[in-house]
Amino acid sequence: MGSTRGEQQAQEAVKARWEHYAHGADIGVRGIGRSTAEAFEQAAVALAGVITDPSRVEAREEVMIKCEAPDPEVLLVDWLNALVYEMAVRRMILARFQVNIEGNQLHGRAWGEDTDVARHEPAVEVKGATYTDLFVGQNSSGAWVAQCVVDV
């Protein structure tokens, strides 16, 4: 189904961005964009933002990520958890992302660098992305939103 001209205009006006929101003991990550893929990219920046200020992270190394899930929401959790895993085993912080989604599959590229405690002052490590407050879809202004709570 194609979108109407009004929806297209609304989407063009969307500025890709990320934000955190409060959740009891932990923190919610939200990505907003013109497509699911862009919302996923921004949600990943929000994930990096839980650990440090993403602008402090240089894109020195690239990591490739593949995920597959039965629905877009589980795919978001898988994508974020894949990043949590890569950051943990590589001792890196990943803060720039490019995502392609085709059907149930996600191909992602992530850039970042080794954790540098003095420069990044990492606040907290993320234990995992959760199914709490999990949402992937369009908001009332037509922007794509990808969000969930992460456990820290």
């Binding site: 898988d78 958890n81 992305a129 199914y131």
Partner: peptide, 17 residues
């Protein structure tokens, strides 16, 4: 540590599905 976090992640997904 990371082991427990990953087990939680792995099985939460499996149990959801």
């Amino acid at each position: 540590r990371g082991l427990g976090h990953q087990i939680g992640t792995d099985f939460l997904r499996e149990m959801v599905l």
